[in-house]
């Protein structure tokens, strides 16, 4: 895991693995009142050309959000998250997320901004499901000497 002391452009954060399940996909649909059949009706999903029901795009987003907030902890704050779904994932797929520091920017006197590139891949074939970027506001004390412009 990248710690504040080695936060610099190019630093890789530890990967996080999520074992999705049909139960999780159902519960996420229920909690969000997502009635799209592609997430709970396998016959419909097959008719649409998919091998099984699909992980919701917002659940991908939720897993990426969790990745960022787990890394940020209490002292830092996730301010922005952008994601683009590249490929589907079916319920039961293992999804791995890894982040890389793209930029470290000055914020105000006490804060700095860390921009991350995030990639979520599916375990079955290693293909990218989601590409994302995030900005996390961190204490300026996290940034080592000479990192900020």
């Amino acid at each position: 895991m990248t710690t504040p002391s080695d936060l610099r452009v190019g630093s890789a954060l530890a990967a996080q693995t999520n074992n999705t399940s049909i139960t999780q996909v159902f519960r996420y649909s229920a909690a969000t009142w997502n009635t799209h059949r592609i997430h709970y009706d396998k016959e419909y999903a097959l008719k649409e050309g998919y091998p099984d029901v699909l992980v919701q795009s917002h659940l991908h987003g939720a897993l990426l959000t969790k990745y960022c907030t787990d890394w940020a902890g209490r002292a830092a704050r996730l301010t922005d998250l952008s994601l683009r779904v590249r490929r589907f994932a079916v319920a039961g797929e293992t999804l791995s997320i890894v982040g890389t520091v793209r930029a470290v920017r000055a914020g105000d006197e006490r804060r700095a901004l860390v921009d991350l590139d995030l990639v979520e891949t599916r375990g079955s074939d290693g293909e990218t499901c989601v590409e994302a970027s995030a900005t996390i506001e961190v204490p300026r004390s996290w940034i080592g000497e000479g990192i900020l412009p």
């Binding site: 917002h58 998250l81 683009r84």
Partner: peptide, 11 residues
Amino acid sequence: RVMGGGEEMHF
């Protein structure tokens, strides 16, 4: 048919 394609969020 409707599908989500991605999102940009500012918290």
